[in-house]
Write a protein that binds this DNA or RNA. Structure first.
Length: 1185
RNA sequence: GCGGCUGUGGCGAAAUUGGCAGACGCACUAGACUUAGGAUCUAGCGGGCAACCAUGGGGGUUCAAGUCCCUCCAGCCGCACCA
């Protein structure tokens, strides 16, 4: 552009100075900001603070699409605005850089996830820089950096070393618990702990060895290791948190998830349930998020009730219900605990229902019912989570034969089991009141159980649509009769407490969160094992860095990847805590399994269970299995097979142990893709164990047995034979104790380290604190920094983290609050969830293979017909293209007579990448032809369209994603229109919280607006137009109303409306031909947060030496906005009929009189006197007739 | 089924406390300039010839309702046998 030829000078495009060239000025200012560290946060500072934060991004390989920066732009506007307002702004960015995708990639390619992550971050960073964000990059953090995760581990150690004291209602150091135990034992201690904690006295405690004490303390610590049922995902090879499982499959990847008992680290978030719930009230977060969290915590107030189980022999003859027993039976420990929120309905209880897994089921079932109950329990236990969720409507259950006694009226009530009762909630048992609970009602109806109404009045009929369980007054309920539900609840709670058969209790749905993942790319858990018990490393030993390993998959034994590390051991443990001499046997120990690092699943019991399962399967062979078994036995293959042999945690159908050949027969159900994935995973693990897996379908075995045997024979001959000792070794559990393996290369005084890592949410639970003092090497953040920055003033991100990150981070923050590190109970005052930007996918349709021409209904045209692929543009009427196709076909195939040609057209609809689709939805036909060729759709292609060589696509709004070919890359938008246009346009699209589709066509309006801004400063010849004239009232009014509106808009996060306001302002100033310095100077400052580059450029052009980023936001002055007159709309009966101009301060009576006197209004009055006249000052006049 | 959010022109939307519905922008139409236009400028643009009718449907409160109340419907998101 430097030496433009003279004759082109007159062409507007070639005036360099006059034209707004975003690409040049944006790069220029981004460099200046970087070089001058313009946005480096000052600390310490006397200014008031403002902390504005974006949710921690995971740097994915796909890079940003235009939806991602939406929130970043909004926060950047706020950050820049607050700087102009004189605040010291903390506006940082960093990366949640541990995570599954990088690890999956590592597993596949062997590339270290750190490298993948680094590359992705570099790309992410570049894309962010393109948009001109004002982040203080000197505070960037990455969760995968050891200097960051050192502190994540440090917090973990703190959590491990604290317990929750319900009396002080906060976390306290474990030492205070030890002290309480040594003084009083554990009975009086009000602590949040495991359910099954055994009571002990001070004497007993003091007699325990250090190790026994440590073991007991694990039941109290806020981070603990225990055997729990977890969501095990074989496809991902790890456990998942509850909120990472959706509809029975993993949220990431969609792999099936099964319930499995494993030793796992957990966080005792339940201790904080009440505070997490209560403090929601004070938060300025969206209702939706708060509701989701409330629901997740799931507080219910109710009553714990004890039902005695009737001593059966003495009641054997009592069949009828409500027959008072002669003497209340006093069975020892024969009680069922029930949690109910409706203790007021206790007179309506007609049966109890236990979860099939309930521990008492076995004990109470009568011999007569045993078979049925066992069958039912078996059925329920084998039902997967997915199946259970799928059919909630089918009522199933079984009578145990046992009875319980209603503690209020001594009525005998039958005890049932039913899968609608969840083992994990409450006590796993419910008192069923079919008249007041719809599930109980359904169950009672289905099994013909009695129903006693205990409420009467409106809406109390459970069979009716409008049933309200809490409506009406109590009946059939003794002393409760006549009370409403609320008072009955209170009265009955009081009564059961007096009777000693129950007590009021608050129940929470939230579970402790599983904290370990069997993965490599996460924070190592800073724990080592000594004599099977977990101890945390000393602070001085942190960070515990991720070791180098050769591969990123689980080991052959199914251990987490970290078990591959050489020397994954702690050197001599810290002194002091928990290292007595005594090696307590811990015979009753729940934690025998804690002998093993937490991945370990196969304890003796488990092993036995698998063996039993195998035996069972052996008895119930499928036909195909039976056939193959006889063939394998009968054929002289030279090797011996075993069937249903346990290998690792799997049961292989047929195994030859000498060649390590496994033959699997699947029942045809394995066509399902999920099962297939699981099979592949299973095969992979078995291969890692050195096995060869061959798979046949039932069909193959039953119909082509000879071929199957032939294949097996060939396989066997290929495989080397092993010596028999190996085969024998399979008799012992194959999952070896990893601790003992690791012991092999332990030095003296060395202990094996935990091999699982922390979950994705660990780092993000506190990163916002690290930004306050990101470089601190001696603390996670200094006290000064924490005291000054306090909390996040504005937090912006997607709503998908409602019950994950947003709950866990609140939990950790409260923990740090208890310890006195932070001063705020909540870390984010205001939370906004930005909406999604959707993509607008493009589709085209072809009539090709899907085309049917019929001479008559039963007769299709022969295949040799000349039948091209018709690409039929949208926007054509049916008759238009059908005729065209008809004519064309007849021309090509003269032998077809038109009269017997019948059309039955079906389209093939395909997506096409939106990159080349034009604003008018048209696309070059060659793009479509190329697409069809690539997808091997053969034949001559014919375009049917109104526009030559262009096809009009169909558009549909969908989620923006690569697979839908509708992604818009912000880099492309920036290079075409500039970052300022992108920023303003994203805001202009609509309210921040709402989802809205990206619209490429309307971006031109915003682009034009910025050029109009430029034109207020420069004329066409590139001459500055600024004048020093004093502004007039009109100009001042335009400016000040804009200042006022923009300020209000930013304060209420309504960014779309301020873009409109800017447009109005520029339109009006242009109409006024205003080029006055004072006006434009202020205008630039208020525009700067939205369009910082152009604002800086023009600000500099005005002669300002300092950048605009720290200018002072102009203060609007009400006096410029005052109108001297107001144009009143005069309405008759609410409809505007006329307008009249009156002085703004005119007396209301006078306004009324003049309005009524006007010719226009007299006409409308038609001689009648108005009933009433309302005059709202400077708003409206309404005449009521 | 339960909970939350959202329904306004052809499209994105505005109307902050009940007071002139549709600001601002896109698309569209006509015109100007131009060798040219996917550039720029000017004008028009909810429907209806009009009276009038229009903020998802119906009802209500009010002098006045997109806004408040009741009720129904649709879409999106979340939860889902929670005793």
């Amino acid at each position: 552009m430097v030496n433009a030829p003279n004759f082109l000078i007159s062409h507007p495009n070639y005036f360099i100075m006059s034209e707004y060239k975003p690409q040049e000025i944006e790069k220029k200012w981004q460099k200046i900001w970087k070089d001058n560290q313009t946005f480096k946060t000052e600390f310490p500072s006397k200014k008031p603070k403002y902390y504005v934060l974006d949710m921690f991004p995971y740097p994915s390989g796909a890079g940003l699409h235009v939806g991602h920066p939406l929130g970043y732009i909004a926060t950047d506007i706020v950050a820049r605005y607050k700087r102009l307002k004189g605040y010291n702004v903390l506006h940082p960015m960093g990366y949640d850089s541990f995570g599954l995708p990088a690890e999956q990639y590592a597993v596949q390619t062997g590339q270290h996830p750190a490298i993948t992550t680094e590359n992705n971050i570099a790309r992410y960073h570049e894309q962010l820089d393109n948009i001109g964000f004002s982040y203080d990059w000197s505070r960037e953090v990455r969760t995968s950096n050891p200097d960051f995760y050192k502190w994540t581990q440090w917090i973990f150690v703190k959590i491990f070393n604290h317990w929750y004291n319900k009396e002080s209602d906060k976390a306290e150091p474990i030492e205070t618990l030890y002290k309480k135990f040594s003084e009083n034992g554990n009975v009086k201690v009000k602590a949040v702990c495991d359910e099954n904690t055994e009571p002990f006295s001070a004497q007993e405690w003091n007699a325990f060895s250090e190790e026994q004490k440590h073991e007991i303390s694990l039941k109290y610590r806020l981070a603990y290791l225990s055997n729990t049922f977890v969501n095990w995902c074989p496809g991902l090879g790890t456990v998942l948190a509850n909120e990472e499982v959706k509809d029975g499959v993993s949220e990431r990847g969609g792999f099936p998830v099964e319930r499995k008992e494993m030793a796992q680290w957990s966080m005792r978030i339940t201790a904080y349930a009440e505070r997490l719930l209560k403090d929601l009230d004070g938060l300025d977060w969206s209702d939706s998020i708060k509701e989701q969290q409330r629901y997740w915590i799931g507080k219910s107030k109710g009553c714990m009730l004890t039902f005695q189980i009737a001593d059966l022999p003495s009641f054997k003859n009592l069949e009828g219900l409500n027959t008072p027993p002669l003497t209340p039976p006093q069975g020892e420990g024969n009680t069922i605990s029930v949690f109910t929120t409706r203790v007021d309905t206790i007179y309506g209880v007609t049966y109890l229902t236990l979860a099939p897994e309930h521990e008492l089921v076995d004990k109470i079932t009568t011999p007569e019912q045993k078979a049925k109950v066992n069958a039912y329990v078996h059925y329920a236990k084998n039902k997967s989570e997915l199946d259970r969720q799928a059919d909630v409507k089918t009522v199933t259950g079984e009578f145990t034969g046992a009875y319980a006694i209603n503690p209020l009226n001594n009525a005998l009530i039958p005890i049932w089991i039913g899968e609608y009762v969840l083992a994990g909630y409450g006590t796993g048992a419910v008192m069923a009141v079919p008249s007041s609970d719809t599930r109980d009602y359904a169950f009672a109806k289905h099994f013909n159980l009695p129903i006693i109404n205990v409420q009467e009045g409106e809406k109390t009929d459970i069979t009716k649509e409008d049933f309200d369980p809490k409506a009406g007054t109590m009946i059939n309920s003794d002393f409760l009769n006549g009370m409403d539900v609320k008072s009955a609840l209170d009265a009955m709670t009081k009564r059961v407490e007096e009777l000693g058969v129950g007590y009021g209790k608050v129940n929470y749905k939230i579970r402790d969160s599983i904290f370990s993942r069997q993965r490599y790319w996460g924070e190592p858990i800073p724990v080592y094992f000594k004599n099977g018990l977990p101890y945390t490393l000393d602070e001085s030993q942190l960070p515990l860095e991720l070791p180098k390993i050769d591969e990123y998959k689980p080991t052959a034994n199914g251990e987490p990847p970290l078990a591959r590390a050489k020397n994954w051991v702690a050197s001599s443990p810290p002194l002091g805590e928990g290292f007595g001499e005594g090696l307590g046997e811990g015979s009753n120990s729940q934690l025998q399994n804690a002998n093993l690092p937490s991945w370990q699943t196969t304890d003796a019991i488990k092993w036995k269970a698998i063996k039993e399962k195998a035996r069972e399967l052996r008895k119930n062979q499928t036909d195909a299995e039976q056939t193959l078994w006889y063939a394998l036995r009968g054929e002289q293959l030279g090797v011996k097979f075993r069937r249903q042999q346990v290998i690792d945690v799997f049961i292989a159908d047929f195994v030859n142990l000498n060649t390590k050949l496994i033959i699997e027969v699947d029942g045809g159900i394995h066509l399902d893709s999920d099962v297939k994935k699981y099979d592949e995973y299973r095969t992979e693990v078995l291969q890692n164990l050195g096995y060869t897996v061959v798979r046949f379908t039932n069909e193959e075995v039953e119909n082509h047995l000879d071929r199957v045997i032939e294949k097996i024979r060939n396989k066997i001959s290929e495989l080397p034979k092993l010596n028999p000792t190996f085969a024998n070794s399979q008799k012992t559990p194959p999952l070896t104790n990893s601790a003992s393996i690791s012991q092999n290369h332990l030095g003296e005084g060395k202990y094996p380290l935990e091999t699982s890592t922390m979950p994705g949410w660990a780092g993000s639970s506190w990163y916002f604190l690290r930004y306050m003092d990101a470089k601190n090497e001696s603390e996670f953040a200094s006290k000064d920094a924490l005291d000054y920055w306090q909390d996040v003033d504005l937090y912006l991100g997607g709503s998908e983290h409602a019950t994950g990150h947003l709950l866990y981070s609140r939990f950790w923050h409260k923990f740090l609050y208890d310890l006195g590190y932070v001063k705020t109970k909540e870390y984010a005052k205001k939370l906004i969830n930005q909406g999604m930007i959707q993509g607008v996918s493009a589709f085209f349709r072809v009539v090709g293979s899907g085309l049917n021409y019929k001479r008559d209904i039963n007769d299709e045209l022969p295949d040799d017909i000349d039948r091209p692929v018709y690409i039929v543009s949208y926007g054509l009427q049916n008759n238009e293209y059908i005729d065209l196709i008809k004519q064309d076909l007849l021309k090509r195939n003269p032998k077809i007579a038109e009269s017997n040609l019948e059309f039955n057209i079906s389209f093939g609809i395909h997506r096409i990448d939106i990159t080349n689709v034009d604003i008018d939805n048209s696309i070059d036909i060659n793009e479509i032809v190329d697409f069809l060729e690539r997808n091997e759709i053969k034949g001559e292609k014919i375009l049917i369209s109104k526009i030559p060589n262009r096809y009009i696509c169909n558009r549909e709004v969908e989620k923006m994603s690569k697979s839908k070919l509708n992604v818009v890359n912000p880099d492309d938008v920036v290079s075409k229109y500039g970052a300022d246009t992108l920023r303003m346009f994203e805001m202009f699209l609509g309210p921040l919280e709402l989802s809205k589709p990206w619209s490429t066509s309307s971006i031109s309006g915003v682009s034009r607006f910025l050029r109009n801004v430029w034109k207020m400063f420069y004329d066409e010849s590139g001459k500055l137009l600024l004048t020093d004239e004093a502004p007039n009232d009109k100009e001042l009014k335009v400016l000040h109303k804009t200042i006022k509106k923009v300020e209000e808009d930013i304060e209420r996060f309504s960014f779309n409306t301020s873009v409109s306001t800017f447009m109005v302002c520029v339109n009006e100033l242009s109409d006024l031909k205003c080029h006055k310095r004072t006006i434009l100077s202020d205008f630039l400052i208020i525009l700067a947060p939205y369009a910082p580059h152009i604002a800086e450029e023009l600000w500099e052009a005005m002669g300002n030496k300092n950048g605009i980023s720290y200018a002072i936001f102009p203060k609007y002055d009400e006096k410029y906005l005052v109108e001297s007159s107001f144009e009143y709309p005069i309405s008759i009966n609410g409809k505007v009929r006329h307008k009249m101009n009156f002085p703004a301060n005119m007396d209301l009576k006078e306004v009324e009189n003049q309005a009524l006197a006007s010719a226009e209004i007299i006409k409308w009055l038609e001689g009648k006197a108005p009933k009433k006249v309302i005059v709202v000052p400077n708003k409206i006049v309404n005449v009521v007739l």
